[in-house]
Computed example of a mutant assay.
Amino acid sequence: MEEDLIIGCKKQDRKAQEALYHKYSGRVMGVCKRYANTMDDANDIFQEAFINIFNSLKKSRTVKIESLEAWVTRISANVAVNYYHKNKKYLNHVPAESALHKIDEEEYGHILGRLRGQELLQLIGGLPTGCKHVFNLYAIEGYSHKEIAEIMDISEGTSKSQLSRARDIIKSKLKLLDHVKYKRVV
């Protein structure tokens, strides 16, 4: 079936495009929300992502069927980063010197395990834009620091420091959450 979607989209068949859209719209919107600061931004990124997906499918000679979902996700993440790179360049940029410590998974893993998906998205969404993008690209999308540096037009060191800063912010928020939840129980 995915092969038919790809072939149909390459031919600009509206039914195939609609089927692909319905199949992946939730996934694409999830990516858009992780990168956006507002719902309006998420909707703009979403629209641009699907335009890029359809244009890329039309031009592409090779999209492996088993990797269509990953391919759609990667295009969506690239569009999201490019959106902010074009429109809000270096907003909340964190310099390399400000990087602190990584999250101690043993200490905070129990809190992360109790968070619902929406709470985790809000936690990530509250990060400064640069940190949020690096965190999403590295921890969720699986990009390397070298790839992130190229996508965001920053150095690898800046990518690493922003990831570290994101983890530090999340760590402090997790401490606060753990403290608040503990106080409610006591």
Rank of each mutant, 00 (worst) to 15 (best):
G130A: 05
L121Y: 07
I154P: 03
I45M: 05
T158K: 00
F46S: 06
R34D: 05
A49S: 09
C131H: 01
E150G: 05
T38S: 12
K132C: 05
F46N: 02
Q118P: 09
L120Q: 12
L127E: 02
N87Y: 05
K88A: 15
I140S: 02
V72C: 03
K132A: 04
Y108V: 13
G157K: 11
K132N: 09
L127C: 03
M152E: 06
H133W: 03
A99F: 03
V79A: 01
Y143C: 06
S155N: 11
N43A: 15
G157A: 11
N87D: 12
M39P: 12
N37R: 10
E48R: 04
I45G: 04
K86M: 13
D44R: 04
L57K: 00
W71D: 00
R74N: 10
T38A: 06
G130V: 00
N55I: 06
H101K: 15
H85D: 15
S144R: 04
Q47D: 11
V79Y: 02
S76Q: 05
P128V: 08
L123V: 05
F135L: 01
E119P: 07
N78F: 09
Y35D: 06
I103D: 04
I140L: 13
A96H: 14
Y83M: 08
K64S: 08
I51S: 05
K58V: 09
Y35M: 10
A42N: 01
D104R: 10
K102Y: 07
H93Y: 12
E141D: 15
V81D: 02
I124Q: 01
D44H: 03
E156C: 09
V81T: 08
L121A: 13
H110C: 14
L91K: 09
Y83Q: 08
A70I: 12
A80Y: 03
P128E: 02
T62R: 01
G109A: 10
E156K: 05
H110Y: 10
A99L: 09
I124R: 00
L91M: 14
G109M: 09
Y84A: 03
S144G: 12
Q118A: 08
H93A: 12
G113L: 15
H110L: 15
L115A: 05
Q122M: 12
T158W: 10
R116T: 12
N43G: 15
Y143A: 06
I148P: 01
Q118D: 15
I53K: 01
K58D: 08
I53N: 00
G117C: 06
K86E: 15
K33W: 01
A70S: 09
C131R: 01
Q47T: 12
I75P: 02
T38E: 11
I65M: 10
E147R: 03
S159V: 12
A96F: 13
T38G: 08
H101V: 15
K88F: 10
V72M: 07
K146Q: 14
I51P: 06
H101G: 15
Q47Y: 04
Y138L: 08
S159C: 13
Y138T: 07
L57C: 00
G126H: 02
L100F: 08
H85Y: 14
